[in-house]
Structure formats: structure tokens, C-alpha cells
């Protein structure tokens, strides 16, 4: 298992963003669904070791990130795309990806090849030397994906990765996710249920800081057969599960 979480919580002042999450995930694509404010981004930030949990136990890639040295080992094998991607406008695409490749302790000799491969993989080869300030929002998002995958991570965390991508790019991105998920754990936090349906082998649904469903997309779809609201089977399963969880206040 690449992710092992036991009763993980995270509090910001009086706000309980993550209220006791227990989860295991191995190689594959893991979708994280939920309404706004469910705690998806906070959970992802903890998995990215950007913020520590308030309580609970977390093992990433078999390592406890509470130790600085273990945390560094995790980060070398980690790729992270935050929801709000910060970037330096004067950098070029290649420089930006290279910068993060180096910060991830990649051997310098491997960096140029890895950077070129990552940039090609997100279909930005033609814009490799362009300054980031000249790129559209969707292209910037793809640059963010490139820096996340440049070190061929074992644990890839993507928060709203398809925001700003056109449908064609979204289709290609889902194929990329499936490819990456063959040997890595990919966690995708998204609002777009079709992304989950197309690419994910497992999905968890969060609400109010808790996981209210964990299973396959087919199982989630089945939940909405009777009384879910939505335009697609997966959407109906999503809404039905949420409604049920809010009525009973229980975890699945």
C-alpha cells in the first residue's frame, strides 16, 4: 500500500476540515469526490506533506512523514499539483519543470531527458521555450501537471487537474492518468464525476471532512439507481450517496 491513513484529522482553528479519515490505497487511480468544503484539498495537502495532520497516523510509500528524513524520501517520490498553481511568469516552460525536477533531488544528468519527456507528455512540446506569462490558463495547468510527473512519481496527487482543459485535452489527460496508475498511486481530487468514471479504479466520496463512500465507480453508480438526481448514472450515485450520508450522518 502506498497510502495508509488511520483516523486522520486536520483542524484549522475551530474548523475541522478533515474529521477522521481512514484509507488505504495502492497502485491505481484513486478518485476523490465531494462538494465544496468537504476537506478534499486539506486531505491532499496532508498527503503532499505540505501541512501536518492534527491527529491520526499516516504512512506514505511505507514511510512516516513525521520524520524529516522520511519526509524528504517521500517528497523525492512525490508529484503534487495544487488547486491554485503558483508559478513564476518569467520562467519558461522547460525552466519551470526543470526547477522542480531539481528541487525533487533528481540526478542532474537525468533531468533534461525527464523534463523533455514530461513536457511532451502534456503536449506542450511546441511551447517548451515560451515564457509562462504568455500561456493560457489551460496550458498553465498542463505545465503544472508536467512538473508533477517529471520525476516519475510513485505517489501523484492532483487537485482539480482538468480545470481549464478543453475536452480533447481532458480525454488525453485521462489516458495519461490510466497510464500513470499502472505503477503509481494517483489521487485525483475533482468535481467532475466523468473524470472519475473514465480514469479511476477506486473512488472515495468526502463530505464534511469524512469519507462517506469508498469503493469502485460501478458501486457508486449502483447507489443512484433508485433515487439519485443527476444527468449521468455516476452523478446520480454521487448525489444519492451524499443525501443518504447527510440524513444518517454515518460513514460508509
Amino acid at each position: 500500500m502506498n497510502i495508509e491513513l488511520t483516523d486522520l484529522t486536520r483542524r484549522f482553528g475551530r474548523n475541522q476540515a478533515v474529521a477522521g479519515v481512514t484509507l488505504e490505497a495502492g497502485p491505481g487511480v484513486f478518485g476523490l469526490l465531494g462538494p465544496n468544503g468537504a476537506g478534499k484539498t486539506s486531505l491532499l495537502r496532508m498527503l503532499a506533506t505540505v501541512i501536518p495532520p492534527t491527529s491520526g497516523r499516516m504512512l506514505l510509500l511505507g514511510r512516516d512523514p513525521r520524520s524529516y528524513e522520511r519526509r524528504r524520501e517521500i517528497r523525492r517520490r512525490l508529484g503534487y499539483l495544487p488547486q491554485n498553481l503558483g508559478y513564476y511568469p518569467s520562467f519558461t516552460v522547460v525552466e519551470f519543470v526543470e526547477y522542480f525536477a531539481l528541487l525533487k533531488d533528481m540526478p542532474p544528468g537525468r533531468v533534461p531527458v525527464a523534463v523533455a519527456a514530461a513536457v511532451e507528455r502534456v503536449d506542450l512540446g511546441g511551447k517548451a521555450r515560451a515564457k509562462l506569462r504568455t500561456l493560457s490558463g489551460g496550458m498553465l495547468r498542463r505545465v503544472g501537471i508536467a512538473q508533477a510527473i517529471v520525476n516519475d512519481p510513485e505517489l501523484l496527487l492532483l487537485d482539480e487537474p482538468t480545470a481549464g482543459l478543453d475536452p480533447e485535452q481532458r480525454v488525453r489527460f485521462r489516458a495519461l492518468l490510466r497510464d500513470l496508475g499502472q505503477h503509481a498511486t494517483v489521487v485525483v481530487s475533482t468535481h467532475l464525476v466523468e473524470d472519475v468514471g473514465a480514469a479511476c479504479t477506486e473512488v472515495a466520496l468526502m463530505d464534511a471532512g469524512r469519507i462517506v463512500f469508498h469503493g469502485t465507480p460501478a458501486e457508486l453508480t449502483a447507489r443512484g439507481a433508485a433515487d439519485g438526481a443527476g444527468d449521468s448514472p455516476l452523478e446520480r450515485g454521487y448525489t444519492a450517496t451524499l443525501a443518504s450520508a447527510r440524513m444518517t450522518g454515518t460513514r460508509s
Binding site: 506533506t49 505540505v50 524528504r72 523525492r76 491554485n84 503558483g86 513564476y88 522542480f100 528541487l103
Partner: peptide, 22 residues
Amino acid sequence: AREHRRNAADLVTGTAWPGWGR
């Protein structure tokens, strides 16, 4: 002030290099 101004704090914190070195 670059990291704060460009909203890049989370992104660079998740890398392996120690913050001081960066």
C-alpha cells in the same frame, strides 16, 4: 516575497529540497 506573491508556497514546500537551501 516571490513565493508568497506568486502563491507558490505549497508547490515548493512539497519538494525534497530543504526550505533553507531553496
